[in-house]
């Protein structure tokens, strides 16, 4: 067991963890934050589904590929930390409005990827958005509406779109 201290959704946590635990395991099984999904489990060393993407120190990362013991001092943001209380984040609202949500299983990872992208670049081109989604799978909607949602969110966050 190892003792680590890291920030999760704005709150510092001190945890006793096993060396083998992934960040995904800690998020879902230890902290009970089940918004982050898992679509591959043990099978891939790289490549994968992207459903488990969270933001670690400002970067979108697959939480299944991060060892918990490397997290000392890290700042982790999961889907549960994106909305401001009752108020949805503009990216979340854009996903709803653009029809980017279908079965919803890939959605949390997609929202986190979009947030990491837009936090750095509020004017991505469509190709930059598509490149950003390269490690994600959306089997229901073929990415189309998700790409549109991220571009819509960027417009709104730049203040160019009237709605919201």
């Amino acid at each position: 067991m190892k003792n680590i201290k890291f920030e999760i959704n704005g709150e510092w946590k001190q945890l006793e963890i096993q060396e083998s635990w992934s960040l995904l395991y800690i998020i879902r099984e230890v902290l009970g934050l089940t918004g982050t999904k898992c679509g591959c489990q043990d099978s891939c060393l790289d490549g994968g589904c992207g459903a488990c993407v969270v933001i670690v120190d400002g970067e979108a990362k697959r939480s299944c590929r991060i060892k918990g013991c490397t997290l000392e001092g890290a700042r982790v943001l999961t889907i549960e930390g994106v909305a401001d209380g009752e108020r949805l984040h503009p990216i979340q609202q854009a996903f709803i409005d653009a029809g980017a949500v279908q079965c919803g299983f890939c959605t949390p990872g997609m929202v986190m990827r979009a947030k990491a992208l837009l936090d750095k670049n509020l004017s991505p081109t469509e190709e930059e958005v598509r490149q950003a989604l390269s490690g994600h799978i959306c089997r229901c909607g073929g990415f189309q509406k998700i790409v549109e949602a991220i571009i819509l969110a960027a417009e709104r966050m730049r203040g160019e779109s009237d709605e919201r």
């Binding site: 934050l33 889907i79 949805l88 979340q92 996903f95 709803i96 919803g104 959605t107």
Partner: peptide, 15 residues
């Protein structure tokens, strides 16, 4: 939009 979209974008839909 799909009726449970808000639950899904916030990670609150329980699978």
């Amino acid at each position: 939009p799909i009726r449970d979209a808000a639950s899904k974008v916030t990670g609150r839909k329980i699978y």
